[in-house]
Design a binder for these strands. Sequence first.
DNA 1: TTTCCACCTTAGAATTACTCCAAGTTTGGA
DNA 2: TCCAAACTTGGAGTAATTCTAAGGTGGAAA
Lengths: 161, 161
Amino acid sequence: MNEVLVRVSSEAQQREARLLQALRDAGLRLTPQRRAICHYLAHTDAHPTAQQIFAAVKPEFPSLSLATVYNTLDALVRLGAVHALGGAGDGAIHYDADLRPHVNLACLQCHRMVDLPCEAVADLNRRVTAESGYRILGARLVYYGLCPDCQRTAREASPTP
Amino acid sequence: MNEVLVRVSSEAQQREARLLQALRDAGLRLTPQRRAICHYLAHTDAHPTAQQIFAAVKPEFPSLSLATVYNTLDALVRLGAVHALGGAGDGAIHYDADLRPHVNLACLQCHRMVDLPCEAVADLNRRVTAESGYRILGARLVYYGLCPDCQRTAREASPTP
DNA sequence: TTTCCACCTTAGAATTACTCCAAGTTTGGA
DNA sequence: TCCAAACTTGGAGTAATTCTAAGGTGGAAA
């Protein structure tokens, strides 16, 4: 196992510990279902929807209900432990347990969502902090559009730039 | 009528003209329904959902169909003439005809949300467009934190920064 | 360790936002 | 004016999310 993989694994474990601690601190119970949901959220780089989380955790808990997934996600979002990213064009909400400042890119056609590390985000953070008078605790930056692949598809369909 | 109202009205008229021109330029037809939807979008400061637009325009066009609203909004978003803002917590998509760069500031304590005009947003837009390879059609930039009033309240309650 | 109850999970029905479709209507160029 | 392409409409259909009532369980207190 190389250095990068070790570091990534460590980050995921830290994320998982942070999610569980947030639930504990709020006086909420750590049921096996909630632990499994937090584990999956912390260890994925995708930005899964509630349905995808349900499908991923279901094999481990065959009795798992969608309502439990929604309940847990709602709690984590209200505690500020995960970010809810909506409007990817598929009508679903995507969840992101990575709270470090970054831009999310959502494709309105294929509905995939990816991260974009961006130096300009730090600059925006500084300016918003300085100009707003707010004590900034977090940010959700989502850009919507067409990914390179879907732009190519659209151009082939209608050759009007 | 004072100077501010005149200026606001002028901006709304410019927005409306821009929306209609975008449809014309794309070779789409300017039906009365589409004109009414553009008029409402350009003259509201709220970020209405498709349902709200439908309810607002319906009195003028009793035969108006929701499908027409969605069709028109879809065209305007694809043309980049309005921004689609998802994930407001209500599962619906909100539309914004104000393309000027700004961020939303949400206070976690008093739950008020305000706009912050910010030059740095234009810079971020440029960088995201250049670095991502995406065709950007919209964005939702939300910062969470404590507004000045609630910071003062929090300091008085627990004097540990 | 045992008890107990407030909180949690579950299944399925209900709600809501949005999309699809076929038929009738209208726009805007020729 | 004429007409084909584009648009509108109403209703049915799809998918995400929320609600509800009944049974189950985590974890603090005894």
